[in-house]
Write a protein that binds this DNA or RNA. Sequence first.
DNA 1: TGCATGTTTGGCTAAACTTGCAAATAGACG
DNA 2: CGTCTATTTGCAAGTTTAGCCAAACATGCA
Lengths: 107, 107
Amino acid sequence: MNAKKRAKYEARARVIKAMAHPTRLFIVDQLAHDEQRCVCELTEMVGADMSTVSRHLTILREAGIIEDERRGTQILYRLRVKCVLNFFDCVEAVLESNAKERMELLR
Amino acid sequence: MNAKKRAKYEARARVIKAMAHPTRLFIVDQLAHDEQRCVCELTEMVGADMSTVSRHLTILREAGIIEDERRGTQILYRLRVKCVLNFFDCVEAVLESNAKERMELLR
DNA sequence: TGCATGTTTGGCTAAACTTGCAAATAGACG
DNA sequence: CGTCTATTTGCAAGTTTAGCCAAACATGCA
């Protein structure tokens, strides 16, 4: 694999890596339903330290998956690219396929 | 977020995390085109130690993304769930969106 | 200006990930 | 059985990540 090709896959991996965490997946899922949320609300929903949630949000933002906008004293986050929701369907398909496989092995 | 919900997102994150590496993305992409490949071929294409490639394959297999089958002395790997290819389209959309954003900031 | 609220950043530790080398394992075959 | 080929696994070192607390920053408002 040459340098150019490697760079291509590294760029893609950076985006996927940003989603590869339960809390960040939850946030994306939440923003898919709720349009936009402030850090305080997300912190409440996630149930972790606000500093931790803030860092997760930074990771998602730097990957280009979400964007933010200041509103007075708080900062609202929202989804930037909707298609990430397709991820969920496919991931569910993988998980179901895994479950089915396990069932068959038991027989 | 309660325990059940957390478990759901953790399961999803495990699948996505398995894809969150340039080499593994390359392998998935390759298997999408080539039907199936042995470890030696993939090692050649990736250009890393075979033990490293083998480990990446294990990670993908345990996530349920690929499956293997012994053929004589070698082991062939192939994609198990095709929809992971949708990931690429969306990831490209994110990357393009990022590129466009950068362009606008320059103006 | 000074205070209150909301968010990010610095610093640190523990845990997880990545990689290559060397050694072990699994089949194929004489 | 011994040996060859293909693949996996044990180990060690280096790198990255996640999480919390405390401190810094930003904004709105009296």
